[in-house]
């Protein structure tokens, strides 16, 4: 209470009156939370899986940078044999991958311009590629393409900027199954100058499907 009396005695009320509304305004309006700049780098590629009616899912491959890879190795490759056994993979799934799932695997899919919300990524696995750790999982994404043309936009992005994604330079896009479905893809890359109107990210994958009935 003594502090309160001291404050009352010395406070310059004009100033206090200026400050109070500003404090309130700040607490109400400041929605921008600064976060970390990218700390983790992932190279990704997409493998589109089809059946005779259209797309069934997108198998994604993430290659982590060496720094993060070594932390995964230290934490999960308990016998240090440079490969992940079933038990180790299941550990990775229940810790790291579970974390990633809460971000919807940083995946953005637009079908004919509409944002597509998928249920849950599945078939998770992890392995080594040289010194780098690789994660693979399937994003269920059913798109019927019989008798029509469908446009799919796909990219990965972390809005909290903890992870930075770049498209892999090898086997960036591949297809499997559904031979009757015609598909064409383009990689739009603002870095190399190839871009299209409405592109949000630096790099995006763009696939056009059309199936003959």
């Amino acid at each position: 209470m003594k502090i309160f009396h001291v404050l009352l005695k010395y406070a310059n009320f004009k100033r206090v009156i200026i400050i109070l509304p500003l404090v309130l305004l700040f607490f109400l309006s400041a929605k921008l939370l600064p976060s970390s700049h990218p700390h983790l780098f992932i190279d990704y590629s997409a493998h589109f899986v089809f059946d005779d009616a259209g797309l069934t899912g997108i198998k994604v491959k993430w290659v982590f940078d060496e720094f993060f890879s070594i932390t995964v190795r230290d934490d999960f490759d308990t016998n240090k044999n440079s490969q992940f056994e079933k038990r180790e993979i299941s550990e990775i799934r229940s810790s790291i991958f579970k974390n990633i799932q809460q971000y919807d695997c940083y995946t953005y899919i637009y079908i004919d311009g509409e944002f597509f919300k998928f249920k849950k990524a599945k078939n998770f696995t992890a392995y080594y590629q040289g010194d780098k750790v690789v994660f693979e999982f399937l994003i269920p994404c059913e798109v019927k393409a019989l008798g029509k043309e469908v446009e799919i936009r796909f990219f990965m992005y972390d809005e909290t900027i903890f992870v930075a994604f770049t498209l892999s330079s090898v086997n960036t896009v591949s297809f499997e199954g559904g031979q009757n479905i015609k598909r064409e893809y383009t990689i739009y890359d603002k870095v190399s100058g190839k871009s299209y109107k409405g592109q949000e990210r630096l790099q995006e994958i763009f696939v056009i499907l059309s199936g003959v009935k």
């Binding site: 921008l32 939370l33 976060s35 810790s95 809460q102 971000y103 909290t160 900027i161 903890f162």
Partner: peptide, 17 residues
């Protein structure tokens, strides 16, 4: 075991992104 930071919404101005 928390590998990635806690989930939160963060909206950056376009120029920052």
């Amino acid at each position: 075991k928390q590998y990635f930071p806690k989930k939160r919404k963060s909206i950056y101005p376009t120029f920052v992104r």
